[in-house]
Design a protein around this nucleic acid. Structure first.
Lengths: 338, 338
DNA sequence: GCTGGCACTCGCACGCGAAGAGTGCCAGGC
DNA sequence: GCCTGGCACTCTTCGCGTGCGAGTGCCAGC
């Protein structure tokens, strides 16, 4: 196990490197932190930390920078979560309070997170499968054409066109609407398939085909892969890091556009609380030099989706974690109110 | 007026510079294009073109590059719109055909445009004010809480929560829903305000407050500034230009995130057909070294929104214009079908 | 009005050397 | 046994001078 002082040295290295973006040497360390020992001693500690793989030197005659493993230790053992200040909290609440609908909530959240952390913000829309049904609406647009509108308790709205195999009367439609809502309203989306299973049986034979079609469209809408959406913002912040740009920024932008990658990433974080993934811990190659801080948010006690930020591994973890946690908390409140 | 050959020289310069990204000299020009004259002659032409402000040299001893004015002349007089090939058209159609709802259409369109042009794609959602109402739905979520759902003929869905001043019975709600729809269904959104003006008068005094509240929420939803949304994609393509990056890419990314800027830009292009804005013709500072190609698209003869791409002034204008036009055409078809 | 020739201007890549930062190691002290 | 000051060594970075090459402008001739 590393001695207490060596951990302090690692902490100091991480802090300085995050602040300056430059490899940090033993002399600078002793000057900026009261370690109570001389540079030579720190050098020994650094050599030990390097042997253990927590830090590395870019070139022989440069200072050290933390490795992914070093950041991991920092995040797990050495750093807390920096709470937001009172004015910051107020600003968050004010900014989110003006939202008029779910799209607006998500858009504002993205902007807010990007501004607070000065990094790329990612916000997932509330998952359908983890929400409950508020209402299902059926609208006859033409005799054999129905629009299906799905509304969740989190304010999310999905719509689908349904082409019916046979004309469907207004009375049958009203019947289906009523039966459907009485069965699924207030229930979790995951329960919907079994709840509507035998619904066609209640209808006249000539309507059963249409009812089945409507129901299967409803079920398709709930399929995991379709139902995940997210919004991204603050990509301009990517330009703040590394001056070796095109190479660094490109794969990150590409990965961000591949929403699948991000969704997988957010989905992987099983822990409902905060998750930090650092550098190579992220499977996707383009994101190997970034870290992702994510957390679930939800209207009640349960998380309905995730939000987080993507930034360079060299990021201010305590501050970022604080901002992410605070924003998630307020978004949850807003959703619960609406 | 410039002689025919000088225009050809300008065209050749634009084409070569777009292809190579490097200033083009007189010798290279004569080698790559059959101008039928010697480099010395071309030099004279280039000097004339420079005097007129169509081209410039980055440094004394380098080749010439087109100025914004040069690109403008190229686009207006020298370049046509390169039509898509048959396979490309088929690919566009296939790609768009799988869309399940409006969000999906827009998302696919953005991806498609970004891929075809290898630039940043921008797609505006169909404008509410230029669409017609398909249906207005009112759902009672609580005695004094109504959800308003607005559906357009282009498939766009907007929802708003309405907190009513007084409890509102299910019967009154059904009444309002029926009256509202009979008045506005099939009508243009811009006509809605006058169409619903006297609607509260038809209700009992105790319900009038609530009806007014619902109606004013409806009207707010239509306010220009709220109703404009857009989706952006292909930002990774920004990294393909200039190696002097951070400086170039940063303001562009910032401008793209400021959706207001883009919306204004798209809105300014009054011409329903294709509009090309080049470099400093764009008022926003961050976009001074980019060009924007935009065109309206719509389900019928009329444009309901715009789409386009943002790229470096040094872009393949004929190809980009061809792609933008083709995509707009197919998106219009898809919307008309849904 | 076009062409070949020629002098001139610069930007850029290359090589070299000095400067500076930081390390590793060692011998001595508490 | 651990910490410290000293010292030699390594390697990157930066500045500078030079040569090269690309490209131009101009001029005289056809």
């Amino acid at each position: 196990m590393l001695s207490e002082r060596r951990l302090q040295v690692l902490r100091a290295i991480v802090q300085d490197y995050v602040g300056t973006e430059e490899p940090v040497g033993s002399k600078a360390l002793t000057e900026r932190h009261n370690l109570g020992v001389s540079p030579a001693t720190v050098r020994n500690d650094m050599a030990a930390l390097e042997d253990e793989g927590f830090i590395a030197q870019p070139h022989t005659s440069a200072g050290r920078i933390p490795t992914d493993k070093g950041y991991r230790l920092f995040v797990d053992k050495l750093a807390g979560v920096k709470p937001m200040t009172a004015p910051e909290r107020r600003a968050i609440q004010n900014f989110l309070d003006g939202a008029v609908d779910l799209d607006d909530v998500v858009a504002r959240t993205v902007r807010l997170l990007a501004q607070l952390t000065r990094q790329v913000a990612v916000v997932q829309y509330p998952s359908l499968t983890r929400s409950t049904v508020r209402h299902v609406e059926l609208l006859a647009l033409a005799p054999a054409r129905v629009m299906l509108v799905l509304i969740t308790d989190t304010g999310r709205v999905e719509q689908r066109m349904v082409d019916c195999p046979a004309p469907f009367g207004e009375a049958s439609l009203a019947d289906l609407r009523a039966r459907l809502n009485s069965r699924v309203a207030g229930r979790r989306f995951t329960d919907v398939p079994t709840l509507v299973e035998d619904l066609p049986d209640a209808f006249e034979p000539e309507d059963r085909g249409t009812v089945s079609t409507v129901l299967s469209t409803l079920l398709e809408t709930l399929v995991e892969e379709n139902e995940e959406r997210l919004m991204i913002g603050g990509t301009a912040n990517l330009t703040r890091f590394g001056h070796d740009f095109p190479l660094t920024i490109r794969p990150v932008l590409e990965a961000l556009e591949e929403q699948v990658v991000l969704l997988k990433l957010l989905g992987e974080a099983k822990d409902p609380g905060m998750t930090v993934r650092i550098g190579h811990e992220i499977a996707h190659e383009g994101l190997n030099s970034t870290s992702v801080v994510s957390v679930g948010y939800g209207s009640g006690g349960e998380a309905v989706a995730k939000l987080g930020v993507v930034g360079p591994t060299r990021m201010d973890y305590p501050g970022t974690m604080g901002a992410v946690r605070a924003v998630a908390r307020y978004v949850g409140q807003i959703l619960a109110e609406s």
